[in-house]
Design a protein around this nucleic acid. Structure first.
Length: 525
RNA sequence: GGGCCUGUAGCUUAGUCAGGUAGAGCGCCGGGCUUUUAACCCGGUGGCCGGGGGUUCAAAUCCCUCCAGGCCCGCCA
């Protein structure tokens, strides 16, 4: 069974009909591909719950109340003064990394493009800005409860995480006079006010019914489970470590009077750049960038097709061919769990694969066949490189029998992404078609004298040839017959001459794209 | 130091939770398509399931142990 369906079944038994799946991310900077797993793990479980007939919601909590922790490399020094301030209350950086007082908040700034990317992969969460949950007083009861039971919570955190808390530790962090929660000391509590003095010597009171402070992370997380009735929240492996925030969250959530979701941990996505630059610069791949290269259903399949506890190598190099082709193959020839002659294992595998395919669809319940491009990624990569216009690509596919009529949106989408990919540093070099200007020494060494004379003759014949795919093909055949080289040898010679390899895409189409003068120059060189 | 995960064919892996004769894709090899779209079709090669021990009629699967690799653990989501 697919992990999402398995989880849905488990949730149904444990928590009944009403389910709330949740993701949570701090918008401290650009979102990256790893966040896609956070989102999709929960969203796919949500979909599986719906498919199982459960009443399910999917919420995405944006940790907008979290403070800016440090001045990140993409920020200017001016952000120094905002350290410790909630991301919802400070200005977003402009293109120079300077605070832009007229723009969006820091949190919104980074969230917007991410939500756009999510829409492209068919994810439409209920977005909850955590600072609003604070300002709408929804945290108040939990905060009061946490303060009243501060000793118990301290005990839980110290015992389970093995961490020693300071003597002045308090389960609520008020904002000081400058809006920062750094350097603020709690001096007392009179419901609903937490009294404080800050590092500037000023004192004041934070109303727990407003966004004037927040719970520390470990308590915040535990509290929100209860506030939103969350039944499932897959967490990154960093939370999953023994004594981590998941482990302390479970008892704290109960202490605050709610039932926590059961622990669920997903592995991380690692970016192994195929391009030479990514290893040195170490830059991450953003979801928007990823979507420019990878068709959305295939990005979903990356997550759906991997078990939660396995790390994923996000590879925009040659592995992308493999992943895309695997998806294509599955859609074209779907596994049939009902087939008679399957062993138990094969049946389980078939069910799992069907689930992965179902969950990979952009639209829930969408027909996988609608996402069938009908061409392998590798083949499309070749055509995209030798055909400059999309119409020529479609024509070529019609000629080869891959396409009848007009391309569907999935195929158009694939080609668009493919062109982006080819234009990027991520496209694998060995798939790149580099047409030689002259026959290099290495290629020449591969060729017999007959083959070389064939090329010379071809150059002459082409001079008077009409410039069409078909005519060029005929000219090749005619010339090879006249030169006494076999068809096979002739083509091999052409590929060595054009590409420096023994194989390649259809030669006549390639010569057509090279153009008459360049081709003649090449073959007579 | 604490903990998690992984180790199955040359490569990527399914199957491990619910034990029942090791599956797939890629690659490779051979053949076909009346002489090449990196296409397509057919067939084939290939694995003491990391090592060892235990439980069982039966172990890739459960238990113990060892080896190897990856990762997480600063109130930091």
């Amino acid at each position: 069974m697919h992990w999402a369906d398995f989880t849905a079944e488990k949730l149904s038994k444990e928590r009944g009909n009403r389910q709330v799946a949740c993701s949570g991310i701090t918008p401290s900077g650009e979102f990256h591909i790893g966040h896609i797993r956070e989102i999709l793990s929960a969203e796919m479980i949500h979909r599986a719950c719906l498919d199982a007939g459960l009443d399910s919601r999917y919420i995405f909590i944006v940790d907008s109340m979290d403070p800016l922790r440090r001045v990140y490399p993409f920020l200017s020094e001016e952000y120094e003064k905002y350290i410790g301030c909630p991301l919802a209350f400070i200005p977003a950086p402009n293109s120079d990394g300077k605070p832009d007082p007229n723009g969006l908040s820091y949190a919104e700034h980074f969230l917007g493009p991410f939500l756009d990317a999510l829409a492209e992969i068919g994810v439409f969460p209920e977005v909850i800005m955590n600072h609003e949950t604070y300002s709408k007083s929804q945290f108040a009861e939990k905060i009061d409860s946490a303060i009243e039971q501060a000793d118990e919570i301290r005990e839980i955190i110290e015992t389970i995480s093995g961490r020693e808390l300071d003597d002045d530790w308090f389960p609520y962090k008020p904002l000081g006079s400058d809006g920062s929660m750094d350097g603020v000391t709690v001096t007392g509590y009179e419901k609903p006010f937490v009294h404080w003095t800050d590092r500037h010597g000023k004192s004041g009171s934070a109303d727990i019914r407003k966004a004037e402070g927040k719970l520390p992370w470990r308590i915040d997380w535990a509290a929100r489970w209860g506030i939103h009735g969350i039944t499932c929240e897959p967490a990154g492996k960093d939370h999953g470590a023994a004594g981590g925030s998941f482990d302390t969250g479970l008892p704290i959530c109960k202490l605050l009077g709610s039932e926590p979701p059961s622990k669920m941990v997903y592995e991380w996505i690692q970016v192994k750049g195929a391009g030479p630059m990514s290893s040195s610069s170490g830059n991450t791949v953003g979801p928007i960038e990823a979507l420019n290269l990878v068709p959305p259903e295939i990005l979903r399949y990356l997550i759906a097709g991997s078990k939660m506890n396995r790390h994923i190598d996000f590879n925009t190099g040659s592995a992308l061919f493999q992943m895309a082709d695997e998806y294509e193959r599955l859609v074209a020839d779907p596994p049939n769990p009902d087939a008679e002659d399957l062993t138990k294992r094969q049946r389980v595998a078939a069910i799992t694969q069907s689930g992965a395919m179902r969950l990979s669809q952009i639209k829930r319940g969408g027909d996988p066949l609608d996402s069938l491009a009908g061409v392998t990624f590798r083949h499309l990569a070749m055509l995209a490189q030798i055909k400059t216009s999309d119409d020529d690509v479609w024509n070529s596919l019609r000629n080869s029998g891959h396409l009848s009529g007009e391309p569907n949106s999935a195929l158009q989408n694939r080609l668009e992404r493919m062109r982006n990919w080819i234009g990027s540093i991520h496209f694998p070099e060995d798939a790149r078609i580099n047409i030689q200007k002259v026959i290099d020494e290495n290629s020449r060494a591969q060729l017999s004298s007959e083959q070389l004379s064939f090329l010379e003759k071809l150059a002459v014949e082409l001079r008077d040839s009409e410039w069409s795919d078909e005519t060029i093909g005929n000219t090749i055949r005619m010339t090879s017959a006249n030169s006494g080289v076999s068809g096979r040898e002739a083509y091999i010679a052409l590929y060595w001459a054009m590409l420096g390899r023994s194989h390649g895409p259809k030669a006549s189409a390639l010569i057509f794209e090279i153009g008459k003068n360049a081709a003649i120059e090449l073959f007579s060189s």
